Simulated scan of single mutants.
Amino acid sequence: MDPNDELVRALALAVGTDPYVVSWRDLDTTRTREELERLSEWVNWAIHRYRLDHKVIPPCWPEHGALTEELSALRTFWEACYQEDAAPSDPLAFHRDLTLALRRLRDWSSLLGCTRTNHRPERVD
């Protein structure tokens, strides 16, 4: 069995339900960890599906707030575009905005300086 089969089934179950919006600011430590695990499933699928490399989404993305916020918003938009009552043009809207989101992710990842094997913590001033 392909390991992606289970993820595809889980993602298919999410379609047809309300888009899942996360307010990261309002989560406690336990909920943050749970939501990151849930988001990781979608991010891993997106990395595979769109052939994204570490220059766009570094492996340490959960350690960076801006990347987590962008990826979470992107997942919510993806879910909304594939609802049962979505307009036929919604998936195109997702891909149009995906282009912009990938540009932002690439810019943030570049500024962070993380690599495929090295995480650089953000400075807190």
Rank of each mutant, 00 (worst) to 15 (best):
M1K: 12
M1C: 08
N4W: 14
E6D: 07
L7N: 02
V8Y: 06
R9S: 03
R9T: 04
A12H: 14
A12Y: 13
A12R: 14
L13E: 06
A14D: 09
V15E: 11
G16H: 09
T17H: 15
T17W: 15
D18T: 10
D18V: 09
Y20M: 07
Y20E: 07
V21E: 03
V22K: 06
S23A: 05
D26M: 08
D26T: 11
D28R: 06
T29A: 15
T30H: 13
T32C: 15
R33H: 14
L36S: 11
E37D: 07
R38H: 15
R38D: 15
R38P: 13
R38E: 15
L39N: 09
E41C: 12
E41V: 06
N44K: 11
N44G: 04
N44C: 04
W45C: 04
A46Y: 05
I47G: 12
H48Y: 07
H48V: 00
R49L: 06
Y50G: 01
Y50I: 00
R51C: 14
L52K: 15
L52C: 10
L52P: 11
L52T: 04
D53C: 05
D53L: 02
K55W: 08
K55L: 02
V56Y: 09
V56N: 09
I57L: 14
P58S: 04
P59W: 03
C60L: 03
C60E: 06
E63P: 07
E63C: 05
E63D: 08
H64D: 02
H64W: 06
G65Q: 10
T68C: 13
S72H: 11
S72Y: 12
L74P: 08
R75H: 11
T76W: 08
T76I: 04
T76C: 12
T76S: 08
F77P: 03
F77E: 04
A80H: 10
Y82P: 00
Q83K: 13
Q83D: 12
E84I: 13
E84W: 14
A86K: 13
A86L: 05
A87Y: 11
P88N: 02
S89P: 01
L92K: 03
F94V: 00
F94S: 00
H95P: 06
R96H: 08
R96A: 06
D97C: 08
L98F: 01
L98C: 00
L98K: 01
L98S: 00
T99Q: 13
A101Y: 01
R103C: 06
R103G: 00
R104P: 08
R104W: 10
R106F: 05
D107F: 14
W108E: 13
S109F: 09
S109L: 04
S109W: 08
G113D: 04
G113R: 05
R116P: 03
R116T: 01
T117E: 09
T117R: 06
N118V: 12
N118L: 10
H119N: 14
H119E: 12
H119Q: 12
R120T: 02
P121M: 07
E122P: 10
E122N: 10
